[in-house]
Design a protein around this nucleic acid. Structure first.
Lengths: 107, 107
DNA sequence: TGAAAAGGCAACTGAAAGGTTGCATATTAC
DNA sequence: GTAATATGCAACCTTTCAGTTGCCTTTTCA
């Protein structure tokens, strides 16, 4: 699985703010997410489509409304596979330490 | 400090690969970084300039060469301030555990 | 000292991205 | 049923971005 769409989706401040708002309150409709953004509904729709394509947001229809839910999995993947690499020593040491302390050393 | 240039810099696969290569071997020259990239030297120069603007890479001249060094600080900031939010419980627990174990609880 | 090596600068091009406008569709409420 | 609400679709415009070409400057070395 490529991480390119994830990084691309995170590159825009509008989309990061949308994720922030969904993190603050999950399951918001398109109309709710449009409030506060200084652009048309269609522009927000496109941003949400990009977030969905990156699997950062999942949507679901309820009647005439469309609910949006944040999906933390890709962000965790970035943290673990990419960003984690740059602080690998520190985090690896911590994780190993944690395992040792929990007596959970099944490697 | 805005994180926008950092996210923008990370949005391009070429720039992520350049960071990868600098992580594998730090202090490479422009010419070295051009090898393996299927584009002109000037294109790579532009990518490196974007990485420098985001403070992800620092450069230094040595004679007629330009050496490039990776700077992990902004990536850590992303990990801590933004991505960390989505896995705050886990990482916070780890950090607290670390402080406790180091007897370093000057809060 | 002069040629090769390493890199810088600036203008140009093509494609993609962000945004808008206009209209269509589906659902709810009166 | 019909009007308002919530959203979808598609064409278009404008700016940004990635990449190229051409030429210039600096440093090294024979």
């Amino acid at each position: 699985m490529s991480m390119d769409p994830i990084f691309r989706a995170l590159a825009d401040p509008v989309r990061r703010r949308l994720l922030d708002r969904l993190f603050a309150r999950n399951g918001q409709t398109l109309g709710e997410l449009c409030e506060g953004e200084a652009m048309t509904r269609q522009a927000v729709t496109k941003h949400l489509a990009i977030l969905e394509a990156a699997n950062l947001v999942v949507s679901q229809k309820r009647g005439r409304e469309k609910l949006h839910f944040i999906n933390p999995v890709p962000i965790n993947e970035i943290a673990e596979r990419w960003i984690g690499k740059f602080e690998a020593p520190r985090l690896a040491a911590l994780a190993q330490l944690k395992r040792k302390l929990e007596g959970d050393d099944h490697e």
